[in-house]
Design a protein around this nucleic acid. Structure first.
Lengths: 339, 339
DNA sequence: CCGGGAAATCGAAACGTTTCATCTCCAGGA
DNA sequence: TCCTGGAGATGAAACGTTTCGATTTCCCGG
């Protein structure tokens, strides 16, 4: 194994100089710096992580708590994880994987044994039992999602309430006055994760404001459920459809077409989902984005800042971003045709 | 921070004694052992991972390389990850998450800097460019999946060829002589992951042996593709259906029913997928299992054994396990009715 | 009563970094 | 010419474990 000592000898400098070249915490002349770097490359030196951790009490590792046993939203979760890992790497950190199922004890173990410097927790529920324990941890913590009482904790999430309002406003502005909402699977609402409910509250509030009627129906991730759901929607005479349900998203347009409803001519469809998903549908969908990459990046940045000493606990709700991909259009009524 | 020194003082023993109590590498009288353990609990001592790693050159961390950007098979991948994390924890190891996308360099970095002791790599392709680099690593490595040249590497996977044969044999034994195979999405075959092709080779081989005809068709993960695929199958007069495609699995039975084909009375259906998925379908499906938990457990065990010093590189193909859940039945012909 | 050996415990040297306190040198001001 | 200060480099002390001898204790046979 190549150690910092070998590098020092090879470059003809002291061990501490090599260390300072690497960390940049003290000025080093460019001449020595270059010489040292060359030695490092030549010898293929990689600083020993354990020794580093011991000496600096920094591991450069973030613990990430993920709900692995979930069958819901799996692709979205993967995207979150992916973005968090990428952001962590950009800040020179690695990611240690913990599962939600193993609870807060594992998080405590990992922190107490100094295996990680900070924690990001995904899929927090409104009354998540882990929250109190997380609050006790004296390392930076950030939650993806917002619990009922977020005091003393950092949180990031899309502003689901405003997003719900935004989708309805968009359709209302296009003249639609009868709007359907294909909700998430009932299981999601049961789990009290909060975000789904917040989305709906935004929807209903906007409906009142814009004086339109909304017909909300949760929808299980099966073809039959979707089918029944859409029939019900069409019976209610809806002309605009909001979909907050990744599982059935792909089939919504197909099923509408099969019922002789063209999109967007006969029915306007707007989705709440990551942009990558909305854009890659057979028919690209107008959508409000779930900004997975941004959420991941912000979560990591909050931690990094926390590690740098900045104290702050904030709940950061990201403003919704609507992209029109042509699946929504002005309501076609006799009046609008004449106009 | 509580250190081993504090524990030693509190228990009235030396530091090394505490260490030996913890590791069990030397005999300690039950009296002292208990006293030390009580002190540990009382003080809430957690050994510092960095110091441990430095002194013992063992991190008790496994690196796991996962394909995060995949849109295919996401749920199955999650199950693998989940099972690997669980197995690792059982062996007192944590899991460091690397993404396939970042390539072999990252694996090298993690090993060279002694952040992890061993590596498990998921989603290896037949001619995976990372394989040579992995072979050079002088730590235990195990691949989930089998590359074209697995020499010098440990691999675990389901025996897909035998599994393919098994599904056909099952249907053939029930009297079906015209069998359809709903394959994975074309993208899977394009990626040359190997397992899909091996499955099909097993299918065709068994078809010859049992003198039945098979009609194989890859199927994109969309409703339209499935629809077309099934129409084609039925036109060919198939009475038995093999499905190797988790994405459309849920809809296969529904679509058959919509075409007035009952399962299993008119069409027998057998799937290749994890048991949890087969069992939780609206109509439980007879299946050959993709044994995610077993594969994960074996992968981890191979690594642990490797870390313990056992030298061995083996390709471990797990024998297929078929579970009849009632979605397959004997072919209904005039002859079989009379019998 | 003594010597020998096993069992239990101890002390101290690693392990490879970071970082603090010093030290050296040299340029520039008086 | 001497002094001062700052930039650049160094040496050595941590950091918290593990682990290798060495030491103590106790029991047993002779």
């Amino acid at each position: 194994m190549i150690t910092i000592k070998d590098v020092a000898r090879h470059a003809g400098v002291s061990v501490s100089t090599v260390s300072y070249v690497l960390s940049g915490k003290r000025p080093i002349s460019t001449a020595t710096s270059q010489r040292v770097r060359r030695s490092i490359d030549e010898l293929g030196f990689h600083p020993n992580a354990g020794a580093r951790a011991l000496a600096s009490s920094r591991t450069n590792v973030l613990a990430l708590v993920v709900p692995l046993r979930t069958d819901l939203n799996v692709p979205v979760i993967m995207q979150f994880v992916s973005s968090i890992v990428a952001s962590a790497r950009e800040h020179n950190h690695d990611v240690l994987l913990l599962t939600k199922e193993s609870g807060a004890d594992e998080v405590h173990r990992v922190i107490a044994s100094a295996r990680a410097d900070a924690v990001v927790v995904m899929d927090v529920e409104a009354h998540d039992p882990r929250v109190p324990a997380l609050r006790e941890l004296d390392v930076p913590v950030v939650l993806v999602g917002v619990p009922a009482d977020p005091s003393g904790l950092n949180c990031v999430d899309l502003d689901f309430a405003t997003s719900g309002a935004r989708t309805v406003a968009h359709l209302a502005d296009l003249g639609h006055s009868s709007i359907g909402v294909v909700g998430s699977p009932p299981a999601v609402y049961d789990r009290e994760t909060g975000y789904a409910a917040r989305f709906l509250s935004g929807v209903t509030k906007a409906a009142r404001k814009h004086d339109v009627t909304v017909h909300i129906e949760p929808c299980a991730p099966t073809y039959t459920a979707l089918s029944a759901c859409l029939d019900s929607m069409l019976n209610h005479g809806i002309t605009g459809l909001v979909v907050h349900n990744e599982a059935v998203l792909a089939d919504v347009v197909l099923e509408l077409q099969r019922r002789n409803k063209r999109v967007p001519e006969d029915v306007s469809v707007i989705a709440l989902c990551p942009d990558t998903i909305a854009a890659t549908q057979p028919v690209p969908l107008t959508s409000v984005a779930i900004p997975v990459d941004e959420v991941g990046a912000i979560a990591v940045e909050m931690l990094i800042r926390g590690l740098a000493g900045e104290q702050s606990t904030e709940v950061r709700l990201l403003a919704p971003q609507l992209t029109d991909r042509g699946s929504t259009a002005p309501l076609r009524t006799p009046r609008s045709r004449r106009a």
